[in-house]
Structure formats: C-alpha cells, structure tokens
Simulated assay, not measured.
Amino acid sequence: MSTFIWIAVALLLIGVYLSWTAGRLDRLHTRIDAARAALDAQLLRRASVTLELATSGVLDPAASIVLYQAAHAARQAEEEQREVAESELSQALRAVFGEPAQVEAVLQAPGGEETAGELAAAVRRVPMARRFHNDAVRAARALRRHRTVRWFRLAGHAPFPLAVEMDDEPPAALVERAGR
C-alpha cells in the first residue's frame, strides 16, 4: 500500500510539473503574439508617418519619391517579403536623413517640426518592439528545446516561433535633432 501512495504522489508531482510547463509555454506564445502585434503597429506607424512626410512637399522631389516608394512597399509587402521591405525602408530613411541639412530643412518647414518629431519617435520605437518580440521568441525556443516539452508534446500544434531579423537602425541625424 505504501508503494502505491508513493507512486501516486510521484505521478501527481509529474502531472503538476507538466501542467505548469505547458502553462508557461502557453503564456510565452501569448507574449510572442502580443509582441508581434506591437511590432506590426510600430512598423505601420513608421511607414504611415514616412508616407505623410513624403507627400507633404517638405522634401525635395527625389527624396520624396525614394521615401514614398519604400514606405508604400513596406505597407503592401506580403508576410514573406515584409522583413526585406522594412529593411529597405530603414535604408531609405538613412539615405534621406543621413545628413543633418535634410533634417534641418524639414524642421524649418511649416509643421515640419511636429512631423519630424513623430518620425523620430516612430523610428526609435521599431528596434525596441523588435527586441521585445525576439526576446519572447528566444525564451519560447529555449523552453521548447527541453526534452520534457518535446516528449510530452506540450507545445501542441503551435508553430515554432521565428525571430524577426531586419535592418531597423534609425537615421542618426533625425533621431539626434528631431527626437529631443
């Protein structure tokens, strides 16, 4: 009888551990979903402000066309091409706002200070949102690699989480001058 009780206690403890681990994994997947939604919102905000600036007439025509095409491509990109399109938008922003003179021209235009401030805030938030998402992905991947999770299939049918790898470095001149 005593052996039966010890086996029952051991099975109960294993069951509690597996349930706790499955709950933790579920919370990590929920955190990934929330972080991905936040990242998508920041990317959309950055593209929207860029489009607004590109069509405002504040920039010279060549810069406007470069920013408009990159922002439009980022907003219209399919999920498979999204990281590439967002990286190209980052590169276009750095190309246009690489020189402080271009930032000053925007700041001097009517309403330019507000628009430049919005854009500076948007480009600063994208790397933070991507970092939060990738941290959640890293934690979920680490937990999913554990033998217990694999053997008991605690992840269920949830897809393996993927990190977002893209160029999101903001233009330094814009962040320094307009991001104050």
Rank of each mutant, 00 (worst) to 15 (best):
A47N: 10
A22Y: 13
A41N: 09
R24A: 12
A10I: 05
A109M: 03
F97W: 00
A37R: 06
E113Y: 05
Y17M: 12
Y17K: 10
G111I: 04
Q76L: 14
A85N: 09
L28Y: 04
L89N: 10
V106N: 00
E80D: 14
L11H: 05
A71S: 07
G111R: 06
R75M: 12
F97N: 05
L67H: 06
E99K: 09
E114L: 08
Q108V: 01
S48D: 14
R94T: 13
Q76R: 13
A71R: 04
A73V: 03
A73L: 07
A47S: 14
E113R: 13
G23T: 00
S48A: 15
P110S: 04
R46F: 07
G98S: 09
D26E: 13
D26N: 07
R27P: 06
A92I: 02
L18V: 05
P110G: 01
E52R: 11
H29D: 12
V96T: 11
I32E: 11
A105G: 08
Q91M: 07
W20M: 13
S56M: 11
G112Q: 01
R36A: 12
L93C: 12
A105D: 07
A92N: 03
E113K: 07
T30K: 03
L53H: 12
A92S: 06
T21L: 14
Q76F: 11
G117V: 00
P61D: 06
L53Q: 10
A70M: 01
V103A: 06
V103H: 01
Q81I: 00
Q81T: 08
Y17R: 13
L44F: 10
R36W: 05
A54M: 06
W6N: 13
P61L: 03
Q69F: 01
V106C: 00
R82S: 14
E79C: 00
L89E: 04
A77D: 13
L107R: 11
S90L: 04
L119S: 05
R82M: 07
A101P: 01
Q69R: 14
Q76I: 02
W6R: 13
A37S: 12
Y68H: 13
A109T: 01
